[in-house]
Design a protein around this nucleic acid. Structure first.
Lengths: 235, 235
DNA sequence: GTCTATAACCGGATAGAC
DNA sequence: GTCTATCCGGTTATAGAC
């Protein structure tokens, strides 16, 4: 189950090589001894650089996490291409994207706990709701937009517009669950995905019924309002 | 907006007094300089004990947070009594309980970020899903059980049974939102509560319709299954 | 100006004496 | 139960090499 962690391919300038060496060393050590069980001194050592040098490239130990995050996101995107090419209905697309997420992230399950720990701190730039995370958030919702927009389902347009963001929130919840999931093969998370995706698909269909219109509108307008005054003009 | 933090009343044995002094000092300092801005040495100092002694009473700095958590929970319970005596319908009861939560927690808003930070760590005993948190979780769901069971609404019995746990999850989400809310008077959280409570009430009513039966059942059985194999026999 | 290294500093945590 | 002394590791200051 724990796949190997592959060193990333092409170094370029000297600096880039050093940087990559540090990330590789860090990921390997994190994998072996966990985040707290790995010291910056060990990472520097394994990468063949001095402690101070490691800090030249990475502001802090936590910033090494961001590097790991970028890697998994890329791997996820790649894995999603096949899924999105294959699946045409919302349910299949969503299920595939989520399963791809937990599969590509599997080698990093241990580390991910720490990621979420720091990510949950409102002050941390790694926090997914922070302005600093805008690019990452954008990429993730863009993926969900593809899940929705190219799907063949009939979805009320007002809902269709907001769905990518709502699905991103849903994805975050699934990940949170996954982090706490110690079951064999992440069976519990798989079950959660299977069943909630099914329910969401049903829900989206039901949401189109005339009866549901008021509930749907108030839900969607709430999302709008909250998003609108989330960040004052400049943030 | 930032109310005073009251020292807790009655000391008893010497140990209890020392313990209380440490908690009081910690809460005051956290409030003034934030969690990271406060050192254990300062806390010990302010409490008039040595550093080592502080660690005799509290395993770690994080464990001081649990003390704070217990305090706010008690204050919340007290505030809820009036609400539950007054409100008879689900919507009013739920709204009142949530507003009481963010009002009583207001003086601790700054610290709460850290609470959630550690809470998101699967390894932390402070994590609300951990076995160690069972008592706290129990108390919180019990409160929600009162919200539901003594409410005058008609609710399908299968849903009524699971609702307390679901509402607890909902409460956690609201708190997560609140932690990130820097708006004046926590206006955004208030809006979120107002609108989602309204929607939930509608949803609970709609859930009783024959049309919704399959969706409702699959949702409820999922909750059951996931809860069931959450903890293997001994955990 | 880009990169690297050494030597501190600081604060959370622990050991062990009283 | 309380203290003092110490460890350990993240982080910073700073000096210098390429």
């Amino acid at each position: 189950m724990p796949k190997k962690i592959e060193p990333v391919p092409p170094p370029a300038t000297k600096g880039e090589r050093t940087r990559a060496a540090i990330v590789d060393a860090a990921l390997k050590l994190f994998h072996k001894h966990g985040y707290d069980g790995t010291t910056m001194r060990e990472i520097a050592n394994a990468a063949g650089v001095s402690l101070g040098n490691a800090y030249y490239y990475f502001e802090s130990k936590e910033h090494l996490i961001q590097a790991f995050y970028e890697r998994t996101h890329l791997e996820h995107l790649v894995a999603c291409e096949r899924v999105l090419a294959r699946e045409k209905k919302l349910e299949g697309r969503l299920r595939g994207v989520l399963l791809a997420k937990i599969d590509t992230a599997e080698p990093y399950h241990r580390i991910s706990g720490i990621l979420f720990k720091t990510a949950a701190d409102p002050k941390s730039p790694l926090n997914p709701f922070s302005p600093a995370s805008e690019p990452v958030r954008r990429e993730a919702t863009d993926l969900m937009r593809r899940v929705v927009e190219e799907s063949s389902n009939k979805i009320p347009t007002d809902l269709r517009e907001k769905l990518p963001e709502l699905l991103w929130l849903y994805e975050m919840s699934v990940i949170l669950f996954w982090i706490h999931d110690e079951s064999k093969g992440r069976a519990r998370t798989r079950k959660l995905i299977e069943r909630t995706v099914e329910m969401l698909a049903k829900l989206v269909m039901v949401a189109g019924l005339p009866l549901m219109k008021p509930l749907r509108s108030s839900a969607l307008s709430l999302v709008d309002e909250l998003k609108h005054d989330a960040l004052p003009p400049g943030g």
